[in-house]
């Protein structure tokens, strides 16, 4: 019996998220919701001089949505906004099956979520944190 998307990395991020906490002085905060399943993420970023100095989230939802958001927060911390945008778009492209293997190296641990593409019903869960980050970048930055 396989573990599928529920590999050790995902289960670890779900059980012990490093970036799931209330940020003290965010410059940007946005809530992302998947109404059909109740996944809810409030993503906060502290952007200084075009660099994401801190990323954190609160909220509730399934293991996939929460772990994926934690993995994303880890990846984008201390990255320039333009790079964060590129990584988020790359992640979404990966989920759609449109990214090539070489590019995926840039996503680090997040590349392990690639197989979510085989579970169409769960794609929205994996995407939630990344879409929320893109919304902040596109609407507020």
């Amino acid at each position: 019996m396989g573990e599928g998307i529920y590999n050790a990395a995902l289960m670890e991020h779900n059980a012990h998220p490093d970036y799931k906490y209330e940020m003290e002085n965010p410059t940007h905060t946005h809530e992302g919701v998947n109404p059909s399943c109740g996944d809810d993420i409030i993503l906060s970023l502290r952007v200084v001089d075009g660099i994401v100095e801190e990323a954190a989230f609160t909220g509730s939802g399934c293991a996939v949505s929460q772990a994926s958001a934690d993995i994303m927060a880890d990846l984008i911390t201390e990255e320039p906004v333009e790079e964060v945008k590129r990584l988020c778009e790359l992640f979404l492209a990966m989920i759609r099956g449109e990214a090539c293997e070489e590019e995926l190296e840039d996503l680090g641990e997040a590349a392990e979520l690639k197989s979510i593409a085989l579970m169409p019903a769960r794609v929205k869960c994996a995407e939630l944190g990344w879409r929320t980050a893109l919304t902040i970048i596109e609407e507020e930055l």
Binding site: Y6, C37, C62, C125
Partner: peptide
Amino acid sequence: GIHPHDVSSILDMDNVAIRAGH
């Protein structure tokens, strides 16, 4: 403590089809 969608996805790996959601 486990979201119904996670329960359903894991049951699906075991070939058990249930519904999860609202």
